[in-house]
Every structure is written in C-alpha cells, then in structure tokens.
Amino acid sequence: MDRILLAHGNGGKLGYELIKSLFLASFNNPVLAQLDDAARIEIASGHLAISTDCYVVNPPFFPGGDIGKLAICGTVNDLSMRGAKPLYLTVGLIIEEGFPLPDLETITASMATTANEVGVQIVAGDTKVVEKGSADRIFINTAGIGMIPEGINVSGANARPGDKVILSGTIGDHGIAILSCREELAFRTTLESDCAPLNQLVSQILQVCPHLHCLRDPTRGGLATTLNELAIQSQVGMVIEEARIPVREEVQGACEMLGLDPLYLANEGKLVAIVPASETDKVMEAMLTNPWGQNARVIGEVQASPSGMVLLKTEVGSTRILDMLSGELLPRIC
C-alpha cells in the first residue's frame, strides 16, 4: 500500500498500524511510546499532561453540538483520560474562503461557552484562510495542557488481570447523530450526539479510587477498538459481555437498518474505566451520581490471556473475538 486511505483516519486497525510503523518510528521517544490519549511530562513541581487533536467533522453543526464544542470537549477529555485537571487550550482554525461569518461566530461562541463550563482558558491560537475548494468549510486543531495530581498515574498500560471494565453509558450516539444529519434519517425521539466534557466525572472517580488503572474515551473506532488498544498496551486479555453494553433503541434500530455495529461507532462523551475489582462498587456509585455516568455498567473483566485480545460473550451464548475496526465505517466523524 503506497497511498493514504480514508480508513487510515478512522481510529481503527489501519490507523493504529500507521502510528506504529511510521509516526512512532520517526518520532520515537519514551513519552510518545506510551501511546496514551495525552503525554505525561515530568516537571519540577509534578506532572503535566499534554494533548493535541484535529477536528474535521462533517457536517460542522449536528444535533447536540457543533465542531467548536466538539473540539473543546475532545481535548479536555484526552487530558482527563490521564487523570489530569485541564487548564489551558490553544486553538488553530483552517477556514475555507467563503465560510459564513455568522457560522464562525456561532462556533467560536460555542467554544467559549464550553471552555467556561469546563474551567479552562483558551490562551493562544492561529487562523489560516485557504482558497475556496482547498478545504471543506472549517477544520479546527486544539492542544491542551493539564496538571496531574500527586499520586495519580492513569495509563492504558496499567490494566491487570482481575480488574473490572466499566463503561460510562450508551454507545454509538455520536456516530448515528452525525449519520442522521448526512442521510436525513428520522427517529421517533430526538437523538443527539453525546458530545460532553468528562473532566468532572473523572474527578469524581479519582476521588473515590485514586489508584484507578486505566481511562480511555472510545471515540473513532468505537468501544471495540478502544478495548483492543488497552488490551495491547497492558498485554492482557479481556472478556466483555454483550448483554451488559447499553445501546439506545434508536441507535440499535439505525444500526440494524444500515448494517452497522454499535461497538464500532464513535462516541464523544463516554469513557471506559478499568479498576481493581475491590474498588468497583465505589467507582460505580460515583459514576451513577454524575449526569455523564448515570447509565454506567460493568461490562467485563480483565484476564491474563489471551494477551492483547478481546473476547465478546454474545447475547446468544457464543464467544467471538472482538477485533479493532477494519476499513472505513464513517469518515469525518470528529
């Protein structure tokens, strides 16, 4: 393969292989090699978390949010997945010539509102305008810095056999909300993206379980890909129970109609927590009291083997390998 495909950007198997074979090989260092959602940097007064992300979602306005809200939430969540308190963000805008100024005002207002709600400051930025046809309306890059509290060491490499796997809520909401805009799908009830900042939820979890092992938000590639990434990082196996995974009726119906699997759909306001078995009840109690964790479920367990693999116990009683996303499911999802 000598060309980049759309599938390289979907957060699945091809993207993971590209990171390992090209980017990690070119930029390799001990911090980057951890392959977590944010880098953990040691400084004299403690540890910083640093993360960056780009947002190209199509369309830029969707039920439950817009590209501006998504950009702030995405980077805040990546910092939070290392146990950090998000503090500062930078924003870079690439805008296509002819983009409506009122739409840009709406997006920047959404970013400001979300940042204020989270308690982070946008402290630097850049704007570029490209010729009409050289981009698709608007792309946003955000980078963030947060402070990791003393004693907190959350990483995708920390899962241990016997740990429980907790999912904070329903999956696939964002993916189907975006698809409904593109394909003009109608539902009996309003289906919105789950786009939300998770820093307060993470803070509540760490208050009751400071020795939490792993956190990860299942965005591109969905829950299935995220679980595989954690299993590979920690060199453990996982067994997940399909019947315990919450899926909204509208999402399940859309997936059945379109031939999609909700396990591979993007989410923008959910997290996976891997916790010591003895701490499970405390973590669940903390999550259920938070609006972004009120549908939390224990969905599985970490095992010693098969290392780097995730097994799914299906609702019909069989067991199958749950692999990373392969191919392109929904491009331009975030």
Results as ranks from 00 to 15, higher is better:
R3T: 14
I4A: 13
L5Y: 13
P30L: 00
L35K: 03
D36C: 03
I43W: 12
S45C: 10
G46H: 04
T52L: 06
V57I: 15
N58K: 12
F62E: 06
M81E: 09
R82N: 13
R82L: 09
K85L: 05
L87P: 07
G92T: 06
L93C: 10
I94G: 15
E96V: 03
G98C: 05
F99E: 09
P100A: 00
L101S: 13
T106Y: 11
T113C: 11
T114D: 06
E117N: 14
D126K: 14
D136Y: 14
I145D: 08
G156F: 04
R160M: 10
G169W: 04
H174A: 01
A177D: 07
I178F: 09
R182A: 01
A186K: 15
T190M: 12
S193P: 07
D194N: 11
C195F: 05
A196P: 06
A196M: 02
N199D: 14
Q200R: 15
Q200E: 15
Q204C: 09
L206M: 00
Q207F: 10
L215P: 05
G221N: 04
E229D: 15
A231T: 02
S234T: 01
I240P: 04
A243G: 13
R244C: 07
V251G: 03
D261M: 00
Y264K: 00
L265C: 00
A277G: 08
A277T: 06
A277Q: 13
D281C: 01
M284F: 05
R297S: 11
Q303D: 05
G308C: 00
L311S: 10
L322N: 09
E328G: 05
L329P: 08
I333T: 13
